[in-house]
Amino acid sequence: MRVANLDGRLVLVTEEGRAVDVAEASGGRFGPDPMAAFADWRGFASWAAERLRDDAPGARALPLDPARLGAPVPRPAQIFAIGVNYREHADEAGYPPDSLPVTFTKFASSLTGNEATVALPDGNVDWEVELVVAIGVGGHGIARSDAWAHVAGVTVGQDLSERIAQLAGTMPQFSLAKSHPGFSPTGPWLVTPDALPDRDDLAISCAIDGETMQDSRTSRMIYDIPELIARLSAVVTLLPGDLIFTGTPAGIGNRRTPPRFLRAGEVLTSRVEGVGELVTRFA
């Protein structure tokens, strides 16, 4: 199942690539707000699966314009971001694997959707393609074996980072340097785990103007998705609609020789197998 934010309204995406308005199709059972599904994710998922069957009645399916897709989860209560979570990225960055996932936050005002145009601030802006997890059912102390049952779906994300401010002080400023407007593009939609070819092993990549910059697989994470959920929820209470940026593989700009950063006019295309393609433009 694919769930999207089309012009600020919650929609289901059909196999034919068309949109079904959830509020209309459910007769008002679920509201039009893209966050409405998280109030009762299991109930919503059950209804949506039935609605997407070929013989199910309801609202007509409308053409889906990718340029009109906003962030699938536009107002999460919490955003968790994980650093150096791929072995090859830890190696290129010069960080030994830690005994705990390196965790920071990205502020929700930095979220944007597919085909967004991001204004580059002063400094050196880097790319970091990531698989982003949306929590469907919250909890504290979630067991690793139960973790996938708490996931609503996954989407493609970019953890854009302004490296000068991030590394200027004695201690790095991860959260601020990664939260300029538009620095957390996500999309194009949320895909439920059952619709993925292999939820634990997905190809992940990004390219600038067609040139591949990162290319890996999510199975190379140091802490996989169940482990991240277990580790995070051992400390905090995860809430429905929370997002987890799960880390980036090798190939970022500031570890290249010479360093390479994003420039105005460039197009960044990020991909995750089974999810789709997220396009971000820079001005």
Rank of each mutant, 00 (worst) to 15 (best):
A71G: 03
G94R: 08
D98A: 14
A71M: 07
F104H: 01
E88G: 05
R87K: 13
A134M: 10
E130T: 01
V132C: 01
V102S: 15
V132N: 00
V133K: 03
G141E: 02
P121L: 12
D122N: 06
A93E: 10
V73K: 01
Y95S: 10
A119Y: 03
G136T: 13
V129L: 00
E88S: 15
G141S: 02
K106P: 00
D65Y: 07
P72L: 11
G139D: 09
T117L: 13
D91F: 09
L120A: 11
A134T: 11
V84H: 11
A119T: 15
P76H: 12
V133S: 03
T117K: 09
S109D: 11
S99T: 15
F104R: 02
A93L: 10
H140Y: 14
D65R: 11
T103F: 05
V118Y: 02
L120K: 09
I142T: 06
S110I: 05
F80L: 10
S110H: 07
V137N: 00
R68P: 01
R75P: 00
A108L: 03
A77M: 08
G83D: 14
P96F: 07
D126P: 02
S110Q: 03
R87E: 13
P66S: 13
R75W: 08
G141T: 04
D122A: 15
V102D: 10
I142P: 09
E88Y: 15
N85K: 12
V102Y: 11
D98E: 13
T103K: 14
I79N: 09
A67I: 03
I135M: 13
V73G: 04
D126W: 08
A119G: 03
D65S: 11
E115R: 14
P76T: 12
G138K: 07
R68L: 15
P63A: 05
K106A: 03
I82W: 07
A77S: 14
I82H: 04
T112W: 07
N124K: 12
P74R: 15
V133W: 04
G123E: 00
L111C: 08
A119K: 11
A116V: 10
V73S: 02
Y95Q: 14
W127D: 00
H140Q: 13
Q78S: 13
A108T: 14
R87M: 14
S99E: 15
S110P: 03
L120I: 12
N124E: 13
G83H: 13
E130S: 00
A134P: 02
L69S: 09
H89F: 06
A116G: 06
V132D: 00
A93T: 10
P96Y: 09
Q78V: 14
P63N: 07
P76K: 08
A108C: 06
A90S: 12
S110T: 11
P101Q: 01
V133N: 01
A71L: 04
P96S: 10
P63G: 07
V133C: 00
Y86M: 07
L111Q: 03
L131H: 01
A108I: 02
A134L: 08
G70T: 10
E88V: 11
D122K: 06
V129A: 04
R87N: 07
I135K: 12
G141K: 04
R68N: 09
T105E: 00
A90D: 06
T103D: 05
P121W: 12
P96M: 01
P97L: 09
T117V: 15
P121N: 05
